[in-house]
Design a protein around this nucleic acid. Structure first.
Lengths: 175, 175
DNA sequence: GGCAAATAGTCGGAAGTCCAAGTAATCTTG
DNA sequence: CAAGATTACTTGGACTTCCGACTATTTGCC
């Protein structure tokens, strides 16, 4: 029994009727929350036959792009922008499924590397194809809407401090 | 130590370099996930002095717009688009804090109503003002970017079956 | 060198979400 | 009107995420 009206549009009307302010922002923020829920459901459903969920897929993808197929857990957390404990949990699962292995860092004994296994590389390749097939859950959005959303969220993420504002110069580190 | 580059843009380059496909969709989907995380952090931090989190605020706001300040739990779940179990949990918390009370439905004994208390109404009004002050966490996005995001996500939500495609006619039920 | 500070990862606990299943009440239908 | 289907809500369990605290190791500085 889906609703016969858009509940967020209805909320916006109530916001305006009660003079609560920032109705446009409320609508967009609530929509992003709901969109996240929809995407996660669609993506996780598509990944379920591969034995993955989105967060585990992201970790595998990141590893598969690295030269050696391995990265320190901390670096994974930085790139995926999740808490260190979440990385521990994610890698625990992947290791239990034989998709990665924990190996000690050659020189820094504090550090643990997650190393992609052959099975892990096969799974992530298949899963990536599956996700491309479903358009990463964005069915219903045009290419223009997708790119506009992406652009708008770049601004949000930059303002939140995810990365600095110097896009062109590739000077990642001091030179 | 924030990254010195946009990790999602980096992921997109890797996607393209490896021919994984749907790089635009991957980027947008990942951005929505990250945006949700940012918004939830900002919003919950702003609500923390009020003793609320976003999901509880949403439930209070919904109740405050109803004629009697009360709604069946099931209707709350429909409007907020969350699982019945989550509604039970949310109302449990609000009830423990004295912001709502569970009261039996006058005619249907299966149904429980959540009834806003005086304290609940006071809190939700204050909290709404706080959230308006912080622009619902969207700091960094222009008005145009906000409205474009909102429009794009309406399409996604409609395609996901959240509501039908007849916006103008207000014919909610059969007539 | 050696001690304080920073860094890397893990554990325990709290919170939120969902699913599956269960209870209770109402509706439907023959 | 009685059995079966449906609806409303709750319970128990699994999962994910975060925070605070902890151990181990490395780095910085006098």
């Amino acid at each position: 029994m889906p609703l016969s009206f858009d509940p967020i549009a209805e909320a916006r009307r109530n916001w305006e009727a009660h003079g609560w302010g920032a109705a446009d922002q409320m609508s967009a923020a609530t929509s992003i929350t709901r969109a996240h829920q929809i995407l996660l459901q669609r993506i996780d459903a598509a990944l379920e036959p591969h034995g993955l969920v989105f967060s585990r897929f992201e970790a595998l993808a990141l590893l598969s792009f690295s030269r050696t197929g391995s990265l320190p857990l901390g670096k994974i957390g930085d790139r995926l922008q999740v808490h260190p404990t979440s990385v521990t949990n994610t890698i625990d699962r992947l290791e239990a499924d034989g998709l990665v292995a924990r190996v000690p860092h050659p020189t820094d004994r504090r550090t643990t590397l997650a190393q992609l296994t052959g099975a892990g590389r096969a799974v992530v390749t298949d899963a990536a194809a599956t996700l491309a097939d479903i358009g990463y859950g964005l069915d219903g959005m045009s290419d223009l809407e997708t790119s506009r959303t992406d652009t708008a969220l770049v601004a949000l993420r930059r303002a939140a401090g995810d990365f600095p504002r110097d896009p062109p110069g590739r000077t990642t580190g001091p030179h």
